[in-house]
């Protein structure tokens, strides 16, 4: 299941010379420019960078929530739009974005209803994915009755219920406290190891990026571009203890150097 070399892995996301320019009243804003990136099957890739570096925008381009203005991008070998219409990915947003009028189980079932699955199939997938994120027993609760961490877990279950091979996560744990975040990071790693999905993860936390990723992409702002791509040689099954090892600290150091180079304190 886990490939250490990844040499013959299938490319899931292929980005070449991609750029995205927003037209605003103050003139064009270059959100992304000259992005080249290849993400292979089974990779756990983190985008890290200061705010405004375009990491979320890049993820939204992959998800077809933004259209690039130049360059090439393919997801699963097709355009992002075709991939979206084929429901090729699950997307986890910065906040849980659960619908308050639906119970947790019905929130998880929402994409399945839209896909037109039978009610037996829906019930089965809801049960399985809620177990996966340790939310069994909370099926009939409403989102506002749950803590922030549980809500975010429910939103991950919702993304997983689609059973995509590709998981796109936009700072999913950004609003949670350190302890809950550690716990969810560990759970996410176990999940990834169990299912061998490809994960693209946006974060601005260095420990989080290094702990989770097989590949860390450091981005620069104005215009958003890739500064460094760090292949992590940490073993695939990790525990939180790995954060104390010299190998971990070495990678974290390299990420920090990259981030520091991207920060300009002139303005």
């Amino acid at each position: 299941m886990a490939r250490e070399d990844g040499a013959n892995a299938r490319s899931v996301i292929d980005i070449r010379d991609l750029s995205l320019t927003f037209e605003t009243n103050d003139g064009p804003v270059h959100a992304l420019s000259n992005i080249d990136l290849n993400i292979e099957e089974g990779d756990f890739v983190s985008f890290i960078g200061p705010s405004g570096c375009g990491k979320t925008t890049l993820l939204r381009v992959i998800a077809d929530l933004e259209k690039p203005t130049g360059g090439h991008i393919s997801v699963n070998g097709v355009s992002p739009e075709e991939a979206r219409l084929a429901r090729a990915y699950g997307y986890v947003f910065q906040s849980a974005a659960l619908y308050p009028w639906r119970t947790i189980a019905n929130n998880v079932a929402l994409p399945l209803e839209i896909m037109g699955l039978s009610s037996e199939e829906r019930a089965e997938r809801v049960k399985r994915n809620m177990e996966l994120v340790n939310l069994s027993g909370f099926e009939r609760k409403y989102p506002w009755q749950l803590s922030g961490g549980m809500q975010q877990r429910a939103s991950i279950a919702r993304a997983l219920a689609v059973e995509p091979d590709l998981l796109l996560m936009d700072e999913p744990f950004g609003a949670l406290d350190e302890i809950v975040r550690d716990h969810l990071n560990e759970q996410l790693l176990q999940l990834w190891a169990k299912t061998n999905k490809t994960v693209v993860f946006v974060t601005h936390s260095i420990p989080e990026a290094v702990f989770l990723s097989t590949k860390i992409v450091v981005l620069f702002p104005r215009p958003g571009r890739i500064y460094d791509v760090i292949e992590s040689d940490l073993p695939r099954d990790r525990t939180l203890d790995i954060r104390e090892t010299p190998e971990f600290l070495k990678i974290a150091h390299r990420v920090r150097d990259g981030l520091r180079a991207g920060h300009s304190y002139d303005d």
Partner: peptide
């Protein structure tokens, strides 16, 4: 965000309207 969610599910107009 709530609308983007529906977009990622490739929901059509009526599904987004009713759900």
């Amino acid at each position: 965000m709530q609308r983007d969610l529906m977009t990622t599910y490739a929901a059509d107009y009526w599904q987004t309207l009713f759900k």
